[in-house]
Simulated scan of single mutants.
Amino acid sequence: MKFKDFEVGMVVTHPPVVVTREDMLAFARSFDPQPFHVDEEAARESRWGGLIGSGWLTCALAMRMVCDAALKGSESFGSPGLERLRWPKPVRPGDALRLEATVDSKRVSSSRSDLGILRWTWRMFNQDDELVLELEATNMFELADEQE
């Protein structure tokens, strides 16, 4: 999508993606090797009662979904950061996660007319419609082509 295509209030969606046990373990072994992410026996004995996916895996999946659903082919060139990142429910092996990204605001920078700023809230839900991720993201878009 192009910056001009985003509208305040619109919801960008991505269909469910199933999180496999193997993907969860591989990600956790590389990036978040806490026992409840990498050791099934330790996870069973933990407060979680079984293996759960790293929140950072959930963020990575959300980023992939946002890229596929909206940012691929756009003028987006990065983000200055995220706010209010939350993981209200753990992700379990076999969960089917879907994305809803709601555009909260859209504006052209007051100091640079070639810079578009989009703020949106990303939410991921599992197959039971339980919220597993919520964050507010800001994306920057190059508007030079639109200004000509």
Rank of each mutant, 00 (worst) to 15 (best):
S74R: 06
P88E: 09
V12T: 10
V19L: 12
L135W: 00
T20Q: 09
S113F: 00
L143V: 05
R44L: 09
A42L: 10
T58Y: 03
V8N: 03
F27T: 00
L135D: 00
P80A: 13
E83A: 14
G81R: 06
S109D: 02
F31R: 04
R29W: 06
F3N: 03
S109H: 04
L51K: 04
R86Y: 02
E40S: 05
V103R: 10
L133F: 15
L57F: 11
L82T: 10
F3P: 01
L143A: 06
F6K: 03
S74P: 12
R29A: 10
V17T: 09
G81C: 10
E134D: 09
E40R: 03
A60H: 00
E146L: 14
K4E: 12
G116Y: 08
I117R: 03
T58P: 07
A60G: 14
M10S: 10
L51D: 02
H37W: 02
L143Y: 04
M124N: 07
G94E: 04
L115E: 11
D23C: 03
R44V: 01
Q147N: 15
S30Y: 00
K89D: 04
V18K: 10
A144G: 02
P33D: 13
V66M: 08
V38N: 08
D129R: 15
K2Q: 14
M1V: 07
D23T: 07
W87H: 14
T20I: 05
E40Y: 01
A137R: 08
G78E: 12
D95S: 11
N139Q: 12
M65S: 12
L82A: 11
T58I: 02
F6A: 08
P15N: 04
R112I: 11
V38C: 06
L115Y: 00
A96L: 08
W120Y: 15
V11K: 14
P90K: 11
E45I: 01
V66T: 02
T121C: 06
A101D: 15
S76Y: 06
M24A: 13
D129K: 12
G53K: 10
E100W: 06
S54F: 02
D23V: 07
E134L: 10
G49W: 01
N126S: 13
A60P: 01
D129T: 09
S110P: 09
P16Y: 02
M63A: 13
G50L: 00
F36V: 12
Q34S: 11
D39C: 04
K2W: 05
P93L: 11
D5H: 04
Q147P: 00
P33V: 15
I117M: 14
E7K: 15
P88A: 13
D114E: 15
G78P: 10
H37R: 05
W56P: 02
P33Q: 07
L131M: 05
S46G: 05
G50A: 02
P35W: 04
S46M: 07
L82S: 05
G9C: 01
R123T: 03
E75C: 03
F27D: 06
L115T: 13
V18N: 02
L57Q: 11
Q34D: 09
M140N: 10
F6Y: 15
C67Q: 05
V17F: 07
D32Y: 06
R123H: 03
V108N: 05
V91H: 03
Q127E: 15
W122S: 14
T138K: 04
E146P: 00
S74W: 08
G53D: 08
G78W: 09
R44M: 05
E22I: 03
L71P: 05
T58V: 13
Q127V: 05
